[in-house]
Computed example of a mutant assay.
Amino acid sequence: MNNSSPKKAKAKNDWHPADVVAALHKAGWTITALGKAHGLSSGQTLSKALSQSYPVAEKRIADALGIHPMEIWPSRYFENGDVKPRGFRAIQFNRITLSVNGKDQAGNSHEAA
């Protein structure tokens, strides 16, 4: 009996924060040293990117590794490399992209009266 089912395309996962730190160490950086190199008083600002979307810090970390931030955090970027909206803008973005034929999912019309 063959229990094979169609394989789903594997979604790329974000790197684990420890993997990002290890890659920085291999490249000769620490979070603190990288932050200071960018004129920050500590590495705490850059370390925020390890746990939440922070495009400026993500770019600085990825540049230190010589790659695009999308390779480290694919869930935070669209396929074309643009940053996905977050917070309230993400709610607005999803509402606009999910609306169908001028009506939202609740059936409310968005047409001008």
Score class of each variant (00 low, 15 high):
2 N>G: 04
2 N>T: 10
2 N>D: 12
7 K>I: 11
8 K>C: 06
9 A>S: 12
9 A>N: 10
9 A>Y: 04
9 A>T: 13
10 K>R: 06
10 K>P: 02
11 A>G: 04
12 K>S: 14
13 N>S: 13
14 D>H: 00
14 D>K: 02
17 P>R: 05
17 P>W: 04
18 A>W: 03
18 A>H: 03
19 D>R: 05
19 D>K: 08
21 V>A: 09
22 A>P: 01
23 A>I: 00
23 A>G: 09
24 L>I: 09
24 L>S: 01
25 H>V: 04
25 H>P: 01
25 H>R: 06
27 A>E: 05
27 A>W: 00
28 G>S: 02
29 W>S: 07
30 T>H: 02
30 T>F: 00
31 I>S: 05
34 L>W: 09
35 G>A: 11
35 G>V: 06
35 G>T: 03
36 K>T: 12
37 A>R: 10
37 A>N: 15
38 H>C: 12
39 G>I: 15
39 G>P: 14
39 G>L: 09
39 G>C: 11
39 G>Y: 10
40 L>N: 11
40 L>D: 15
43 G>C: 08
43 G>E: 13
44 Q>V: 15
45 T>A: 14
46 L>W: 12
49 A>E: 04
49 A>C: 07
50 L>R: 00
50 L>Q: 06
51 S>L: 01
52 Q>W: 01
53 S>R: 02
54 Y>S: 11
55 P>M: 03
56 V>M: 09
57 A>K: 01
57 A>I: 00
58 E>H: 00
61 I>A: 00
64 A>S: 03
65 L>H: 07
65 L>W: 12
66 G>R: 00
69 P>L: 08
71 E>L: 07
71 E>G: 11
72 I>G: 01
73 W>M: 05
73 W>C: 03
75 S>I: 04
75 S>K: 06
78 F>P: 00
78 F>T: 13
79 E>M: 07
79 E>F: 05
79 E>R: 12
80 N>Q: 04
82 D>Y: 01
83 V>F: 01
85 P>L: 11
86 R>W: 03
87 G>I: 06
87 G>H: 04
88 F>A: 12
89 R>T: 06
92 Q>K: 05
94 N>V: 11
96 I>M: 06
99 S>V: 01
99 S>G: 08
103 K>Q: 14
104 D>M: 07
105 Q>G: 08
106 A>P: 02
108 N>T: 11
108 N>C: 13
110 H>Y: 14
112 A>P: 03
